[in-house]
Design a protein around this nucleic acid. Structure first.
Lengths: 181, 181
DNA sequence: AGCATGCCTGACCGATCGGTCAGTACCTGA
DNA sequence: TCAGGTACTGACCGATCGGTCAGGCATGCT
């Protein structure tokens, strides 16, 4: 054990993920996390600059995948954009359903914070793509319902295996989204 | 500035609705509400036993309509239940989109509280009805996506008139829900 | 006039929050 | 042996939360 002890860092991250998933971000105190790890609150803040940094590191992989999807959508139009966006977002939701779940409706507040500001813009582009870049209100409404519906519910299906959940969500998305004219 | 009339009660209710809609229930303090009304926090708590009572009174009409829908669903099966549930829920979402919006993802926590415990059961029956009482996982998944999607997004469309929003949401719901076999 | 009642308030409470800080124990390389 | 870095902690901080309480101030009834 020459290079000692970044182990606590990872333990804190895991505990935070568990607690956030149960009580949400705002509903979980640093004390809660420390208790779960079995260390002091000061230790949590030794490893992470602040509570937001903890969330940030926890969400980093999901955000990276979202940014990759955003890049893949860019330049596409109409039905092509819609298809890529739907498949990409369902993949993301299935893969990171635990991480997404732990934000449970705290998106609006969190997106206000500068650290997550660009997520807001990405999700707007995602909605536009899901709507097939149509400007009909009905297309945008359908896109938003699909996006929010999947984001809010995917965390409920932690017991369903990926290969079963993915096609089911994708089928719902394809049915719900308006066909591009 | 002594207020002549007991209209303060209603003013507080309105202010709370406005603040909750912007910053959510947990994210809004009694101080915030008092500031918006132009009275003291103690006055808010003079008119309402506690913060939860404020929310409760604010949500009462929406809850009453939800209970009425629940009663209407009871006894129906299959496609009939699905149709009534979809239409009824869309009506409810459109009519009370402001009230629903202000809970923004705080449903999970709030439903834990005893005052709202039965809402949890109603929403489960609603999901079952939207799934056409099918026990196929895909049907249940579609039902949950529709329910959550509409609930989470209807608050985004405060500027769209009812007669335009209602058919659009209903169309999405009908497309997204699995046809009962 | 005296009194009760309804409306409202400032001051205050205990609890909890995220975050800071000085200090301690331990390991490692010189 | 000892200096210095890493990991960690208890004590503490200011802010804010929901909620309590005694009392002030009109108003209207007797």
């Amino acid at each position: 054990m020459a290079r000692a002890v970044p182990e606590t860092h990872h333990e804190i991250l895991a505990a935070a993920g568990r607690r956030f998933a149960v009580t949400g971000y705002k509903g979980t105190s640093l004390q809660d996390i420390a208790r779960e790890v079995g260390c002091s609150k000061a230790t949590v803040l030794y490893h992470f600059a602040n509570k937001e940094a903890l969330l940030s590191e926890l969400m980093a992989p999901a955000i990276a995948m979202l940014e990759a999807l955003d890049a893949r959508i860019a330049g596409r139009t109409g039905a092509d954009a819609q298809r890529v966006a739907a498949e990409g977002f369902v993949d993301l939701a299935v893969r990171f359903r635990r991480e997404i779940a732990l934000l449970r409706g705290e998106f609006p507040d969190l997106l206000q914070q500068p650290a997550f500001a660009h997520i807001q813009q990405i999700s707007e582009r995602l909605v536009a793509a899901l709507a097939g870049h149509s400007d009909r209100p009905a297309a945008r409404i359908a896109a938003l319902v699909v996006l929010a519906g999947i984001a809010e519910t995917c965390g409920e299906f932690l017991d369903i295996p990926d290969q079963e959940l993915r096609p089911a969500l994708l089928a719902v998305a394809h049915r719900a989204l308006e066909p591009t004219t």
